[in-house]
């Protein structure tokens, strides 16, 4: 199979205006992926599916990923005037990375027996902008998995033929796989609580009686 760099340049040649970015993966899997832009995602996907050298006709897996907002504090050495003399002072700077949601598609070729090629789509933010173009028109097998991502992460796939919740009930409003989701508090009966469950169960414990030592006295002493 062609290298990811080759696929990227060929896709950008084939689809005018498309921006494809290679996302490196520094982990042990070392599986880099292609980040597609929203506007040309479907055209690039069509190219990946139909190109005779690639023929990625099988979308085996679609997953959601939640990247919440994060702040990174960095220590930067800055030159400053201290008491009239210029000195190098360490200052901590805070950098803010806005969060986003991702859909990751794993593609294989049944005809040419190669793969996987991983492609990603990113939303602009985690609230109103959580929209992505649906790739179900390209790979039919993405239909249920995109519905699952919509259900659990709250990404709306534009152009999906039947975007409804698939696992939770229709009246449900939360997105349980997001990192800031908190499950309903039904910890009132935990016979063997431990760790973080213990902390949640403790909220339901009856308050301890206030002891002042009088309960240890016998009846004779109390008189």
């Amino acid at each position: 199979m062609q290298s990811l760099e080759e696929i990227k340049t060929r896709a950008e040649m084939e689809v005018p205006g498309a921006k494809v970015e290679i996302v490196p993966n520094p982990g042990p899997a070392n599986q880099p992926s292609l980040l597609l832009d929203h506007q040309h995602a479907r055209a690039v996907a069509l190219f990946l599916r139909d190109d005779p050298a690639l023929k990625l006709d099988h979308c085996s897996n679609v997953t959601g990923v939640d990247w919440p907002d994060r702040k990174v504090t960095k220590k930067v050495k800055v030159k400053k005037l201290v008491d009239g003399a210029e000195k190098e002072v360490e200052e901590s700077q805070e950098e803010f990375f806005p969060g986003y949601l991702e859909a990751v598609y794993h593609l294989f070729s049944m005809t040419l027996r190669h793969g996987p090629v991983v492609i990603r789509l990113r939303t602009t933010d985690r609230a109103a902008g959580a929209h992505l173009p649906s790739l179900t028109p390209i790979w039919r097998s993405a239909e249920f998995q995109e519905r699952e991502i919509f259900d659990l992460y709250g990404i709306k796939f534009d152009g999906h033929p039947d975007l409804r919740r698939i696992l939770m009930w229709d009246e449900f409003e939360d997105f349980p796989m997001r990192k800031d989701y908190r499950e309903p508090d039904d910890y009132e009966y935990e016979p063997t609580p431990h760790d973080d469950v213990l902390e949640k169960a403790k909220q339901h414990y009856p308050p301890r009686p206030q002891l002042d030592g009088a309960e240890n006295l016998t009846a004779a002493q109390q008189q």
Binding site: D170, E171, F172, E173, P184, D186, Y205
Partner: peptide
């Protein structure tokens, strides 16, 4: 089916968990 959980989360007429001694 509620917005966050089943409503009610349990039926108090049926579900009476034993009081645990802490």
């Amino acid at each position: 089916f509620g917005a966050h959980d089943l409503e009610p989360p349990s039926n108090p007429a049926v579900f009476r968990p034993p009081q645990l001694e802490r």
